[in-house]
């Protein structure tokens, strides 16, 4: 996890950090920020696609976490708990957007534009791939190019590990709509990445 290590030496593991948080030590809060802020910020940015909104979600998440730390029951890891707060905040932010109605009005079927066009094999092996700046940039650009209605479903189902039922409830959609949108998102991303992955840029 990126970030300075000075506070990590004070709290060498999560158990020690939790103890510090329970005792209300300011250093523990600072340590929690340094450990988890990159993760929370990155995920908020991918959900919202806007740096200012992501920073706002990041701040709201940690304000709530520090205020409500006593409600953390340690059934999950600290990172997972923080991430749930951030996801709820980001979903509320999405619902506040005026154009969020596209989330409900999208055609719920595989569209002709979703059908695979590029049928070249990819030499890359994800298990052994190095996530260098170029590859990271390609993946981020493709994700940013997805319509929000597909990106949010991909985010929740694929990366956050929500079930179809949970994602449907979070977005106010039917489960079949979530399934179709996940499929469409995957197909679109595959297509958006295909030229790069099939070409010279995959020697990573």
């Amino acid at each position: 996890m990126p970030g300075p290590t000075i506070d990590l030496q004070v709290y060498p593991n999560e158990a020690a950090l939790l103890e510090g948080l329970r005792a209300g030590e300011p250093d523990a809060c600072t340590c929690m920020v340094k450990r988890f802020a990159p993760l929370i910020y990155t995920k908020a940015l991918r959900m919202l696609g806007d740096a200012d909104e992501a920073e706002n979600i990041l701040q709201q998440t940690f304000i709530k976490a520090c205020d409500k730390f006593t409600s953390f029951e340690e059934r999950s890891g600290l990172g997972t708990w923080l991430y749930r707060i951030a996801t709820n905040e980001a979903l509320m932010q999405l619902r506040r957007r005026e154009y969020t109605d596209t989330i409900e009005t999208l055609d719920e079927a595989i569209q002709p534009a979703d059908l695979p066009q590029n049928l070249q094999a990819w030499p890359i092996d994800p298990a052994g791939a190095v996530l260098n700046d170029e590859l990271r940039s390609q993946l981020e650009q493709a994700l940013a190019a997805l319509p929000e209605s597909l990106r949010i479903v991909f985010r929740l189902r694929e990366l956050d590990g929500l079930s179809t039922e949970e994602a449907a409830a979070a977005l106010g959609l039917g489960e079949s709509a979530v399934k179709v949108r996940l499929h469409r998102a995957r197909l679109r991303l595959r297509e958006l990445l295909a030229d790069y992955m099939a070409g010279e840029g995959t020697n990573v």
Partner: peptide
């Protein structure tokens, strides 16, 4: 390639970038 797409995004998700300068300080 669809399977590789999914795995690559999991790889991306497991390796967040450092947050931009100033974001942590403001937080």
């Amino acid at each position: 390639t669809l399977t590789k797409t999914i795995k690559l995004y999991h790889l991306l998700d497991e390796n967040p970038e450092a947050i931009p300068a100033g974001v942590e300080e403001r937080l």
